[in-house]
Design a protein around this nucleic acid. Structure first.
Lengths: 196, 196
DNA sequence: TCTTTCACGTACCTTCGGTATGCGAACGAA
DNA sequence: TTCGTTCGCATACCGAAGGTACGTGAAAGA
């Protein structure tokens, strides 16, 4: 008893590193955090870090994947709670704005993500976690004739960028009134897509 | 003759540093460029660099200001070439997308900018260089009744973010067709703002 | 002409990401 | 149970990069 299997120990250490790195990256930003801080907070050493990850950037990649996965889940849940495809789109977008207003999530997902991994890789991860939801929803709405037939990829990117920026702005200089105004403005843009 | 005043020399060195740093930051990204590379390309030493700037981040700040200023000028010129306020807005937006599709400008202005300086400072610089044009144009159009009366700040951020993301996407995976589709989608969104 | 200021070069320090190596405990086979 | 192997991780070290302290020679002012 009290014995710990290797798989358990491995998982515990990995979790500790991911948790510590996530908290520090979120609080101070990728560049301002040293590996020494991370391993100290995780109560391990650099040896453990390099045993689990290829380096600082790879550790960040794992943290980013975790964050993006959580946001993707929130958006999916919000969308799936609705029946009407149009409401699924709007609910998903509003939920994304809410989730992305968290400063910790922002710093990792929207600020450092593209800079650390490069925009292409960041885009790929974003696509896999949540952006494809948006593209699928738009495609579905086009198929159903709810919005005008048009290439969905450019539209998806415009909307994605709009929401990212809006969330960043809300977190830094926004009171509750700003949030409501932003939601309204986004709704207006989305509504404008509908065929009349 | 042949004599150089101190002000001249100072300006020459500063220009050399800014030019070298801009080229390297654009090509390799802020994190991947060392001060040694920069001062070698500028044919000076680190002493000169630290005499003109407070450090690597401050040098980047100066480069970013230069890039943003140029983009702002291009947008202003495009807008001022039109008489109709509505056309000024659309022309300015289209010109921004064109300018921001340049990979060098992207890396400095859209990718590394927020990560190196933090989003708040980046936002402030963007506001000063080009974003205020957008907000002013929108305010003007609201005053004239061309678009519905509404808070312009959230709208400006949504549009700004949409254009930033669109430009990034276009540069990485876009052919000429994608550019046309993106322009069309943006026009559609802008048109939707008009009071009918 | 003499002093001061300034632009910049040189040498050095510190920190940080990354690597090489060693060790003890869990694991698998006999 | 024993014994060799593997694995998870700690320790010590290295090179590079950002940053600093100080020296120097030429322009600027008196």
């Amino acid at each position: 008893m009290g014995n710990t299997t290797r798989a358990e120990q491995r998982e515990r250490t990995r979790r500790a590193l991911l948790g510590a790195a996530r908290a520090l990256f979120a609080a101070e930003g990728y560049g301002a955090v040293g590996l020494a801080e991370i391993v100290k907070a995780a109560e391990v050493t650099k040896g453990a870090l390099y045993h689990h990850f290829d380096g600082k950037a790879d550790l960040f990649r794992a943290v980013l994947a975790e964050v993006q996965d959580e946001v993707g889940q929130r958006v999916s849940s919000a969308a799936d709670a609705r029946e009407d495809p149009w409401e699924q789109l709007t609910a998903g977008c509003q939920e994304f704005i809410t989730a992305a207003t968290d400063p910790d999530i922002q710093r990792i997902m929207l600020i450092d993500g593209p800079a650390v991994l490069g925009w292409n890789e960041w885009r790929g991860m974003d696509e896999a976690s949540s952006a494809h939801h948006l593209a699928e929803a738009l495609t579905d709405l086009v198929e159903r004739g709810v919005i005008a037939r048009q290439p969905v990829a450019p539209l998806a990117h415009l909307l994605s960028g709009a929401m990212n920026e809006a969330a960043l702005w809300l977190a830094s200089s926004g009171g509750p009134g700003e949030l409501a105004d932003t939601r309204a403005a986004l709704s207006g843009i989305l509504d404008a897509l509908r065929t009349r």
